[in-house]
Amino acid sequence: MNTKPHNMFRLAALAAACLLSTAGAAQAETYQFSGDISSSPTFQRLIGSGPNLSTVANAVHFNAFEFSVSQAGSYSFESLVPGDTSPTGGVWDNYLFLYQTAFNPADARVNILKGSSGLGFGAAKLSLDLSAGSRYVLVTSGYLNKDMGSFVNTINGAGQVSPVPEPASAALLLAGLLALGVMVSQGRRRA
């Protein structure tokens, strides 16, 4: 009895599990990620939670992180920039916004839940009750158009935070799974 196709199927299943786990594994209670908004797209940010748009921050760079949570409850968000060691530390002044469902850079007033600045180059912080299974977008931006650079964001809360894969990431994962399926199919034909 030839077990090669069976072993290839097990290998394909293992590879698929590895791809899924690296495509945004959920972490219990605390989730941290970093980035840099220096060369990212821009938008006209809100003043606080809106509804007014800032006239002096009409082209701030931003990062949009889409996620969902596994459990309803209170969640806190903190954004730090290099040099944040005190309320007056940091090399650029950051701003955080939380949106529900989607973020539209063409109109930052749509779907806004809350906004908060780092106030004088300190950590930008906000907290809010979230619902399980809903899609949220955490937007990290500068206070002024000139404020940009690297950041580290931390989300703490009642449940697991799961990043929502970007369409390109999901397409890459699907292509990998299809390639594994073709390999398994070819192995079966040869057996």
Rank of each mutant, 00 (worst) to 15 (best):
A123T: 05
S169P: 13
S141M: 00
R135Y: 06
L119I: 08
F151D: 08
N153R: 00
L172E: 02
M183I: 03
V161I: 15
K114M: 15
R135E: 13
V184Y: 07
G149F: 10
S169L: 15
N156K: 13
A170P: 01
I112R: 09
A132D: 12
L130T: 05
L126F: 13
F151P: 00
K146F: 09
V139R: 01
L174K: 07
G181Q: 04
Q186G: 10
G149C: 09
V182N: 03
S150K: 08
M183W: 01
A123P: 03
F121W: 13
L173Q: 05
L138Y: 14
G120W: 14
G115P: 11
S127L: 08
Q186I: 08
N156P: 10
F121S: 02
L180D: 09
L128W: 14
G133P: 13
K125F: 10
T140R: 00
P165D: 08
L177D: 00
G157V: 05
S162C: 06
N145W: 01
L174G: 04
G122V: 00
Q160W: 04
V139M: 02
G159M: 03
L128A: 05
E166N: 13
V182I: 15
S150R: 06
V164K: 05
A179I: 14
S185L: 09
Q186D: 05
A123H: 03
G133T: 15
G142E: 03
S150T: 12
A175M: 09
G115V: 02
V184G: 00
A132V: 02
M183Q: 00
V184K: 01
D147T: 06
A171N: 13
S117Y: 07
G149I: 06
N111L: 02
S185R: 10
S134I: 01
S134M: 12
G176C: 11
E166L: 14
L178H: 01
P165W: 02
I155Y: 13
S131W: 02
V184W: 06
G157M: 11
M183A: 06
S116A: 12
V164I: 09
P163N: 13
P167G: 15
V184D: 02
G157L: 07
K125Q: 13
S116T: 03
S141A: 11
A171W: 14
S169N: 12
D147K: 00
V164H: 04
V152N: 15
P167T: 15
L130S: 01
E166M: 14
A179G: 01
V161Q: 06
V164C: 07
T140A: 02
F151T: 02
A123S: 03
L128Q: 11
L144M: 10
L138G: 08
Y143K: 07
N156Y: 10
V110Y: 07
N156V: 12
P163R: 13
A124K: 06
L144Y: 09
L138E: 09
L173I: 03
E166V: 10
R135H: 14
A171F: 15
L130R: 01
S131H: 08
L172Q: 07
L177P: 01
L113G: 11
G115E: 06
Q186K: 15
S116W: 08
S150M: 04
A175I: 07
P165V: 07
G122K: 01
G115W: 10
S185W: 12
A132W: 07
P165I: 04
S117L: 04
G149V: 14
L172W: 04
G142H: 05
V139N: 03
N156Q: 12
A158G: 00
K146R: 07
Y143E: 10
G149P: 06
G118E: 06
V161T: 09
L119P: 07
A171L: 15
S127T: 12
